[in-house]
Amino acid sequence: MRFLCATLLALGALGARHSRQEPGPLQRGLGDAEPEGPWVYNDIPGGFESARKSGKPLLLVFR
């Protein structure tokens, strides 16, 4: 289930290039700035999976 969610999030992120993503409960709850473009939001395994598939490096922001 976790993998499925991560994959869906990563695919969703790739498909939502440069558009504002719908904030999830965590993002809303923390009042976090709304990232624009293909951010993988708070999903480290999903980010690594996406990097493995795409061959891209990762940029991880900790805030």
């Binding site: 993002q27 795409s54 490096p57 940029l59 991880l60």
Partner: peptide, 11 residues
Amino acid sequence: LDQFVCVRVVE
């Protein structure tokens, strides 16, 4: 940024 997989970690 387009050349990276960008991950925002808040937790």
